[in-house]
Design a protein around this nucleic acid. Structure first.
Lengths: 217, 217, 217, 217
DNA sequence: AATGAATGAGTGTTCATTCAT
DNA sequence: TATGAATGAACACTCATTCAT
């Protein structure tokens, strides 16, 4: 097993934290490979190369690790995007940028991407929580007339569905690297942004985010 | 168990066909109640009031009945919509009408609706096949300049995701009966239809489809 | 595995009944060997030479088979004793006879005897139910002045404890075949029967009961 | 955790002894709360506020601590009773007094009482050892004609069963505070003591023993 | 064609015990 | 000595699937 996203962070912590991180990395992998529903505690433990008993030293049950992983993934993406968009003020720009970055991030870290898609679909609670930051942008944009919509739960779910669907197709290989731009363009149109401006924002070149937490030595 | 969607149609066929139809009706019910993952062959057989052995006389395995049910559901909706839209020519009108009808149909037949969402979302093969008719409308609209998009697999999946997401929220009770109009409006905007026209088409009053179980011969 | 107590009765019934009987026989054996607490469903299934899944086709859980076995054992003993004591009227005679027969029965069918001891200790509910017939004798004897006691729950439990303790020691090999007489004598003394009469009743020769349900061909 | 029975006595000894005593006190508590079978080493260690590893520094395995606790409990009761009955000479008086005191002691210290019942009932070895002092009284009484019995293992077990059964019912709340007198009366009758004398000895008022935790040096 | 008893691999979970620190 | 993370066999229970009837 490669170090994984969480394992890399835990390298300097105690043994308990390292094992926990190994389990969470393994869970991401198994969720991606088998789906959250079909993943079993045993399989996660096996993938983490620990005994099945160890799983239960660290997580109360399957639901517990699902939550932990989903929460970490959501936290990750929010933290990363927030940092990357520090300088961006325009709501439409932020939306386009965020959507494209998430899709690229998910596509270039396939396991993480699959886990993200599945977590977001599987856990409505998490969906609301993790997309709160996007909702803030949408509401701000709507107030300022950048968007021409009423922001409600349904709109948010439609908005999110466009991201997850595009990412899913990207991951399956059926969509190429323009998936992010296409999804973002669709979102902006949906929000009432004029076609030309939507196109410009969605296709403007951007630098990909780096996922890595471990700096090059 | 009341005569379900499939059972009603099989009434005139042989005994084998009737038993098969009973199983499929039962499957729809159990899938809706417990989810496809958690539905067991035994439970389906029990709901169909046949023995568990009989299940395997009619379906190779669980996957087999899932596919059969999904296929029938998709076929159903296509047939019904095609019939209902016989007189509609304008691609945008057809899109708005179709989306709204599917959502209302799914919402008013919850079991069928849940099964539809799950089928469409988790069986890509079926998704392509069942949405071929919509794709034809999109392509025609694009050629005629009604829509301003390039119709590809990604666009289709984004398009479909808006329907399934809206239907899902409708079924969970979190969205009300304007869900169909909102979803349709989002779709039209996404396709490049001017905001005003999108609004008009999506909110224009329509008569709900009947889920006619037995057509006159 | 030998035919067992329950299996013998089921020989002429359907397959389902035969398997159920095998499981109950196996349970008696495992309860005797390992104790009710430590017996596992898997071990019972294994002893019955059926798969572990079959166990759950016949019993909801371990508690279910414990109850079934205990109930059958209690029913058995009551039925047998009732029949054997049809002609006995004197309460003291009945008590002495019953106690001695149960102990001999349990001693000569060790598995059944162990299961009886453990069931009676483990299930207070069953204890009350299975000893109702003895309580009736005690109350009748008390009313007629044969016994000089107040019959209450505590007295009944003390009374029963003398039987189970004697049977247990008999089964462990630490007590010989006078265990029944000694226990009966202690009981009668405890109930206020004069020493000489208690001795006479407890040691008077009796013919052992036969357990066998299957008549010689 | 309050200082238990064993902990209090170990206060002046070394650290190792104190930890061991804490574990034994915790074991008594957990055995009472969950039953010996269902008590886990982890739970005992947790209740003793030491790590689970420490448990195995002090006891070879779970069986080991069960024995140690049982032995200490038995030793306790013998020591206490012996001291309290220093002035009593008559065998029948000693029996009645001892039985009643044990039952009251067990009833007023429920954890200890439960542990006592379980130890005595399930560890025959311990039973013989812990009841040696009572056996001496029985044998002396028999020699002197106070009792009219032959004292053997079976008689001892019947005798003890009356104590444990009465204590158990007392602990479950199904018997009240006359349980001790009733059990003692039954025992005396069983031993051949005349009914009137048995009654007098069993119901004569006595002062309850104190479960003194720390004796003055 | 239908039945339903039986199967056995699989699931989630517990816990006595070991061992590196 | 004490720690506590890790182990792995065992448990209760489920369910897709087979097969004799």
């Amino acid at each position: 097993m490669s170090a994984g996203v969480f394992g890399a962070e835990a390298r300097r912590e105690g043994k308990r934290a390292r094992t926990r991180a190994r389990l969470m990395d393994a869970a991401v992998e198994v969720f991606a490979r088998r789906g959250v529903e079909r993943a079993s505690a045993n399989e996660i433990a096996h993938a983490a190369e620990v005994s099945n008993g160890t799983f239960y030293n660290h997580f109360r049950d399957k639901h517990d690790i699902v939550e932990a992983v989903a929460f970490r993934i959501a936290t990750d993406v929010v933290r990363r995007l927030d940092a990357a968009m520090a300088g961006l003020d325009d709501a439409a720009e932020r939306i386009a940028f965020g959507t494209r970055q998430i899709i690229e991030l998910g596509a270039s870290h396939a396991e993480w991407g699959h886990a993200l898609v599945r977590s977001i679909r599987y856990l409505p609670e998490l969906r609301r929580q993790a997309t709160a930051f996007a909702r803030a942008d949408l509401e701000r944009g709507a107030r300022r007339g950048v968007f021409d919509v009423e922001v409600d739960d349904l709109l948010m779910d439609l908005f999110v569905a466009l991201v997850t669907t595009a990412l899913e197709l990207r991951l399956s290989g059926e969509a190429g690297d323009e998936a992010g731009s296409k999804a973002a363009e669709s979102q902006l149109r949906m929000l009432g942004v004029p076609v030309a401006r939507a196109h410009e924002l969605a296709w403007r070149p951007i630098a990909p985010l780096r996922f890595g937490l471990v700096e090059p030595a």
